[in-house]
Amino acid sequence: MPGIQLGSRRARRDNEQRQRALEAELRRLGQHFRAGHNGEGEWQEPTFILQDIGPGELARLGRDFGQAAVLCGSGTRAALLWLDGGRAVQAERRWLVCLPPEPRAFK
């Protein structure tokens, strides 16, 4: 479940343009993806969740789109890969836990 998040406190318009460019590149590559978001409040921004992409290709996309890091995962494991020149230089590994959905209130 790799992901690319476009954003380090850039102007909203710049982020939106980069997001559209990344989406176009993912489509050109035939990459399957889903839209998502990362962060909360003023730091919340859109992201793409990719399937079947290795850490090397993910790092290349991160480099091409000016990212400091990309999130890469498999199963219940995830790693935040910090980038330098398009290659991962450090990984912060975590275990993922699925939470049950919150019950909906009936109307």
Rank of each mutant, 00 (worst) to 15 (best):
V70L: 03
L80S: 09
G56I: 09
G54P: 06
A78G: 09
D64L: 04
P55D: 06
W95A: 14
G73Q: 10
A79P: 00
G56T: 04
F65G: 04
R104M: 11
P101Y: 11
T47A: 12
L50C: 11
A79F: 02
L26A: 00
H37A: 15
E42W: 00
R77E: 03
G56H: 13
P2R: 06
Q67G: 12
R12Y: 01
Q90R: 15
W43F: 08
G30W: 00
R20V: 06
A91W: 06
R13I: 03
D52N: 07
W43G: 13
A59E: 08
A69L: 02
E102K: 12
C98D: 14
G86W: 03
L99N: 03
V89S: 08
L71N: 03
N15F: 01
P46R: 00
E57D: 13
L83K: 05
R27N: 08
E23R: 06
E57A: 15
R10T: 02
R60P: 02
Q5L: 13
L81I: 12
K107I: 14
A35E: 13
A78T: 05
G75P: 00
P55R: 11
V89F: 04
L58E: 07
Q19L: 04
Q44T: 12
P101Q: 15
L50T: 08
E23I: 13
D52F: 04
F33H: 10
L6S: 00
Q90A: 12
L81N: 01
A59L: 11
R94C: 12
F33A: 09
H37E: 11
R10Y: 03
R94L: 07
S8P: 00
S8M: 01
P46V: 02
A78I: 11
N38A: 15
P100K: 11
V89A: 10
R93N: 14
D14E: 07
S74V: 09
W82E: 10
E16A: 02
L22Q: 00
G66P: 06
R34H: 15
V89P: 06
L29D: 13
L6D: 01
A24W: 02
R27A: 14
L29N: 05
G56E: 12
R94T: 10
I53D: 03
W43P: 11
L99Y: 03
L80F: 05
L58Q: 03
T76G: 09
R20A: 12
E92H: 14
E25S: 08
T47K: 07
D84T: 08
